[in-house]
């Protein structure tokens, strides 16, 4: 089930991406509405990361095209922010928090110039928004997982974009950080920003997202959360595996198995 809309922020048209002849994304075709918090849901290896990398032009498309704000990515790049997986960089790199956030103020145009005091002010303001203002000069090697994710988020905020593509921002972060991030994302949505989040904790989907994309190499569904987030489509996305998992959790619920925090 795919709900299409007019004047989409993001449009993927028959997009196929393949690694070594093997398709990772097959014929993806959807449109996404503006001002929404959108969850991209699917099992491991279903092509979620590949899809947002393809949207950012970081991977070649085998076929199809993507449009962002109705245009090619290169025309609207300054309005799009990409947040890679936290684990994709080396956190032992000799840099401090502010260095990383200031990366968000860099553009091809100013790469050879000095950053202005305004750039610094924006970076500091973004650190304040993610409650990391006390860590400005902290070396990134000394941050916890949740703090690393906040720094990545601040870097994205510093780009002052209208569309955010976030790859697994909630993986390996503490509850406080997850809550802080989701509050911030909701606040951004109120300002009309569109946020795509690659996500795989099914329990929180209904609370977090207005719109859901279900993916498993093929597009299973794309639409409003209340229409799309239902067991039939989820089973199709996770192919049977979900069944076992949900049985286990039902069993646990029934037996009142104690849930312990580690």
């Amino acid at each position: 089930m795919v709900q299409h809309i007019d004047n989409p922020v993001v449009e993927l048209h028959n997009v196929t991406v393949a690694y070594q002849q093997k398709p990772v994304l097959w014929n993806i075709d959807y449109t996404l509405p503006e001002g929404n918090l959108i969850g991209i849901i699917g099992p491991n290896g279903s092509g979620k990361t590949t899809m947002i990398k393809a949207m950012m032009g970081l991977l070649p498309l085998s076929s199809g095209y993507t449009k962002i704000f109705g245009k090619d990515l290169d025309d609207v790049r300054s309005r799009v922010s990409y947040v890679p997986q936290r684990g994709s960089v080396d956190w032992d790199f000799p840099a401090n928090v502010l260095d990383v956030v200031l990366m968000g103020r860099s553009k091809p145009k100013n790469i050879f110039k000095r950053l202005t005091s305004q750039d610094r002010a924006i970076a500091l303001e973004c650190l304040r928004k993610v409650k990391m203002e006390n860590f400005v000069k902290r070396q990134i090697s000394q941050l916890s997982g949740g703090q690393q994710q906040r720094v990545f988020l601040a870097r994205a905020l510093a780009q002052e974009a209208d569309l955010y593509l976030m790859d697994e921002p909630f993986v390996g972060v503490d509850m406080a950080t997850e809550q802080a991030i989701i509050d911030l994302l909701k606040e951004m949505r109120e300002k009309g920003k569109t946020i795509l989040v690659v996500h795989h904790d099914l329990q929180t989907v209904k609370d977090y997202f207005d719109w859901v994309v279900l993916l498993n190499t093929r597009l299973v569904a794309s639409g409003k959360t209340e229409d799309v987030f239902q067991s039939e489509l989820l089973n199709e996305t996770y192919g049977g595996k979900l069944n076992i998992l949900s049985q286990v959790s039902n069993l646990l619920k029934a037996k009142g198995h104690p849930v312990r925090e580690k």
Partner: peptide, 23 residues
């Protein structure tokens, strides 16, 4: 001196640099 920021960004996070449109 001139290329410090370009070298820094592409060394620390090449994917992010590419997403900014930096070569």
């Amino acid at each position: 001196q001139i290329g410090y920021r370009g070298l820094f960004i592409t060394t620390f996070d090449e994917t992010f640099a590419a997403s900014l449109g930096i070569s």
